[in-house]
Lab assay of single mutants.
Amino acid sequence: ETEYTFDDKREADRAAKEAQNNGLRVHVTKDGNRWKVRID
């Protein structure tokens, strides 16, 4: 399990989409004014 934090939602969405394309499970959550992408 890996977690990334992004300031920009577009960057978070791009990272999530890339991980999904690689067959990974992805969870995107909002943390204040930042975005967390957790990859299982």
Rank of each mutant, 00 (worst) to 15 (best):
N22M: 12
N22Q: 14
K9F: 14
R10F: 13
D40V: 15
R38P: 01
W35C: 05
D40S: 15
E11W: 06
A16R: 06
L24R: 08
V26D: 01
K36S: 03
E3L: 07
Q20N: 07
E3Y: 10
E1I: 14
Y4M: 13
E18W: 06
G23W: 00
V37L: 05
E3W: 12
A12R: 01
K36Y: 07
K36G: 04
E3H: 05
V37C: 05
G32R: 00
R34V: 05
R34E: 05
T5K: 04
T5A: 07
R14Q: 11
K9W: 15
D7K: 07
N21A: 14
R25A: 10
F6H: 02
W35Y: 04
E1W: 15
A12I: 00
N21Y: 06
G23N: 05
A19C: 11
I39V: 10
D31F: 03
V37Y: 00
K30N: 07
T5H: 11
E1K: 11
N21H: 10
N33I: 03
T2Q: 12
D31T: 07
E18M: 10
A15Q: 06
V37M: 02
W35E: 04
K36N: 06
R25N: 11
N22D: 08
W35P: 04
D7T: 10
E3T: 08
G32I: 00
A15M: 14
E18P: 01
Q20V: 12
K9T: 02
T29L: 09
R10P: 08
Q20E: 13
F6M: 02
A15S: 05
E3F: 08
F6L: 02
D8E: 08
G32P: 00
K36L: 14
K36I: 15
F6I: 01
R10I: 13
R38K: 13
F6N: 01
Q20G: 07
E18H: 11
V28D: 00
K9A: 08
G32V: 00
D31E: 13
D7V: 09
N33T: 05
R14G: 06
K30G: 04
V28N: 00
A15F: 15
I39H: 02
E3I: 13
D40N: 10
Y4V: 09
F6W: 02
A16E: 04
T5I: 15
W35Q: 04
A15K: 12
D13S: 07
K30W: 06
